[in-house]
Design a protein around this nucleic acid. Sequence first.
DNA 1: CCAGACGTTGTT
DNA 2: GTCTGG
DNA 3: CCAGACGTTGTT
DNA 4: GTCTGG
Length: 223
Amino acid sequence: MCGRFALFSSPASIVDHLHLDSVQLPAGFTPRYNIAPGQEILVIRNNQQPALLRWGLIPGWAKDEKIGYRLINARAETLWEKPAFRRAASARRCLIPADLFYEWEKTADGKQPYAIRMKTGRLFAMAGVWDAWTDRNTGEVIESCTIITTAAVGSLKKIHGRMPLIVPPEHYEVWVESADYPNVDFQNLLKVSTTFAFELTPVGRRLNRPENDDPTILEPASR
DNA sequence: CCAGACGTTGTT
DNA sequence: GTCTGG
DNA sequence: CCAGACGTTGTT
DNA sequence: GTCTGG
């Protein structure tokens, strides 16, 4: 799955990699090394400025925003069937840029976290969907999103069974242009993403605390 | 018709 | 909101 | 994902 | 164990 990731590339390289027209990233955007569910994450949507949305999808019909704490991931295999995601999947797709994500390997000594980068070292974009929810009491609107997961591939399989679905650059446009391609060939996206090669680095358990958000958590740990 | 769920991961 | 189960 | 709380009454 | 918060 994907329950923690990092995004520390410069705004210029993010804009460049995602072919954004504008260099305008939202106010409050800063380099992050330990992004946790419930926090605001950078998402790219169709014809909109990049924005910070809460990680953890709150469907529009939800009575309580707390449901978002459980909907931090959506399975690619069932995305189009699940009531919580179906609408967002066809109309509200987004890209979530990241420099790396984290997975935990279950071992006899507890859980060993790994930082997982592309072998190329490049920024990449995870597939997501988003929704807007209005608090009936206050009228406050919360925009939120979830990260799509798929079966782990290659070297990742050894430590964990799931991983985020990564969108290849040539599919960025079709993925975010929900209205123009409502039934994008999702299976094809799935297959292409399995060709990525990853590099795994064991890191210290200081990562576990979301408040530890600095580059030192990436220092390789012995295991 | 109304009521109740609506999710993932991992573990059993 | 929309679907499933009763 | 992991960490940390998980409760009430009454008094300060 | 289960839920909430980050």
